[in-house]
Design a protein around this nucleic acid. Sequence first.
DNA 1: CTGGCTCACTGGACTAGCCTCTTAGACAGT
DNA 2: ACTGTCTAAGAGGCTAGTCCAGTGAGCCAG
Lengths: 253, 253
Amino acid sequence: MEKTARAGLERVTRPRLYEQLVEQILAYIESAQLRPGDLLPAERDLAERLGVSRATLAQALVALEVLGVIDVQHGTGAVLARRPSVASVVKGLREHQSRLPEIVEARSTLEVKLATLAAERRTDQDLSAIEHALDVMAKEIDGGDRGAHGDELFHEAITAAAHSSVLAQLMAFIAEMILETRMESLGQPGRPEQSLASHRKIADAVRAQDGDAAAKAMLAHIELVSDVEPAPLAADPLRGDNASSSGLESTGI
Amino acid sequence: MEKTARAGLERVTRPRLYEQLVEQILAYIESAQLRPGDLLPAERDLAERLGVSRATLAQALVALEVLGVIDVQHGTGAVLARRPSVASVVKGLREHQSRLPEIVEARSTLEVKLATLAAERRTDQDLSAIEHALDVMAKEIDGGDRGAHGDELFHEAITAAAHSSVLAQLMAFIAEMILETRMESLGQPGRPEQSLASHRKIADAVRAQDGDAAAKAMLAHIELVSDVEPAPLAADPLRGDNASSSGLESTGI
DNA sequence: CTGGCTCACTGGACTAGCCTCTTAGACAGT
DNA sequence: ACTGTCTAAGAGGCTAGTCCAGTGAGCCAG
């Protein structure tokens, strides 16, 4: 899953041993019915049973540690973390790729809250950034563009104005999901003027520091914008994907 | 669950070398202005520069790979992933430890939405789980307990009933933040009966499939429960950050 | 110009060994 | 009996050295 491969071709990567070990250890934990707090077999023991060297096993253990599955304690052993949640989160993210509607749903939830907070907490500087974004968007649309860049700026400015790093991180998380699912753009190219108008309403509410109005305006905006099919995945020539630019940027929301 | 570390004491864990290496490599990437697609120095080279063995460096590279920062290719080298975003999320989490109010805020945002969706989407089975959680909580409180386990069950059931894996993942994410910040409990021990009553209201709304009512009930519940000081946040001596044991279980919300 | 070969370089993995830390049990001293 | 100290076995941490296996640039013959 993931990575380049525009035309279906994908750089084959030889599987690493430690990855297999992670799988096997995970399976072992399940089959052995180990519970949080329990110890894994000793490294030397495990390595022998799995038929690998300690060094390689150590890599697998590091991976499991990073995934939050275990907690390795010097002199004691590898103990199962109290909750396999991290693992499930990460696994859930990568494997069972989340579907579009759910992502839109989560994003709208956050955006509405961000709009409310932005209205309540914005500084004058935040407001300037928001209005600057509107200017950019208006100019772009005037020039025939769909105003994607300005749109992005706008939502970033709103997020910043909410002054909540936690919510901002959650938004970043969602942005990643969108990337992983490779949805280019959730927004439709049409009606950029309408979109601009609803942005303006949000900005007005934020300027007036009216949280409820901001929430309503954001909700209306999202509903306006998200009742459209996702764009057909503009096929970019070759592997072009590294560019942090391109892609997802504006989801239209 | 689990009894260790009740009094805010935490098992000190000797820092692992590979963790430091991860930090240093991250710093190097930043300082060297490496961009996605660029190569890291060769393993032998890096190991010498950092003054560690290749085996240890290999562990650090595995960690970075799991974190999504790099992609190690046999015969080529370690190439920077197209998006360093994951790293930034993780770094943001670890460094600039998010503060309590923001976390509560984010959590309440999600919980309210989850309650709404739960009301709209619950199956009969979901409802059974929710009511079972209430039973457990009631029994616990009857027995003099503060009902933490039932509380946890309840919120898990609500989350499940909302049938949104994305939002569920965000909740898991927040749970992790709470772990990392080591907040013992956001909830107060007092008034478990009131808390149970407000849980019942939420359950009623979900049963009646009334999304708005569920949202209101959840909001009221959170406000009832969260107007208490957070636990004094045991000042961590050194860099201690491996969440590990203790705390969080139920955040009272 | 194409195809095949070579070789230097990169990561993958193993082995053997020594270090530090943890823990439990023996063995005092009180 | 209780308590503190010591010790040794066993756990993980890390290193150094060695060999194997991909990669890709460059050379050279067809």
